[in-house]
């Protein structure tokens, strides 16, 4: 059956299509569900890996295309005015996350801006499942999901960390929106179902809502 959900472009099918159902689930709490889960779709995800010798040249190219200079240190995140995030996920390696689905345009623009600079520009838009978790007990769920320290003193938003999430390797991006701390998880697409099951089973004890 074609996926007619408005969140996906014609023909696109999320890896969570058969797993995700909107609603409120789990334990009933007086305060209501203490965890909110949602999937982010329609993103452009492009990874840029520059050669160390050329790093000063990759920066301006990324800035030209995204509007923000790529952060130099692994674990740093910078956000452009239009919400595009640039995460440094390793030495000379950045993941660019843009909020509209236009991977071809972005890869082309980056390649042009880079010119002769040696840097690999790879579209990963289809290769990741992206899930957001927020709410008073989001941190408690994350404590079950990952072994790293997520305390705001250690990971002040915005920031990122590539680590183990539910036993698979993925990226945790931390944002602060309306004074709320939000975790955005990027996992390889093939793990999407597994991640969703893990998060929902863990969050059930706190009550969780799934939003579109």
């Amino acid at each position: 059956m074609p996926d007619n959900s408005p969140k996906t472009l014609p023909g696109r099918r999320s890896a969570l299509a058969s797993h995700l159902r909107p609603g409120v689930f789990g334990a009933q709490c007086e305060r209501g569900p203490l965890v909110t889960l949602s999937e982010r779709t329609g993103l452009t995800l492009v990874q840029v890996t520059a050669r160390a010798a050329d790093k000063r040249k990759a920066g301006p190219a990324i800035k030209k295309v995204t509007g923000v200079s790529p952060p130099p240190k692994t674990g740093e995140t910078r956000i452009a005015d239009d919400g595009t995030a640039v995460h440094c996920i390793g030495p000379e390696r950045w993941l660019i996350v843009a909020e509209t689905a236009a991977p071809d345009a972005m890869t082309a623009a980056l390649r042009e801006a880079l010119g002769n600079t040696t840097a690999a520009v790879v579209d990963l838009s289809s290769g990741r499942a992206v899930v957001r978790i927020s709410g008073p007990k989001a941190a408690a769920v994350m404590m079950a999901a990952t072994p790293i320290d997520l305390h705001p003193d250690v990971l002040p938003a915005p920031a990122c960390a590539h680590t183990l999430i539910a036993q698979a390797a993925g990226l945790i991006a931390v944002f602060e929106e309306a004074e709320e701390r939000i975790f955005e998880l990027h996992l390889q697409r093939s793990y999407a179902g597994h991640l969703w099951e893990f998060l929902t089973e863990t969050a059930a004890q706190y009550g969780y809502s799934v939003t579109d």
Partner: peptide, 11 residues
């Protein structure tokens, strides 16, 4: 040296 202190399970 890039990511900070991590458990050995990540390596």
């Amino acid at each position: 040296p890039h990511c900070g202190p991590r458990d050995q399970t990540e390596f």
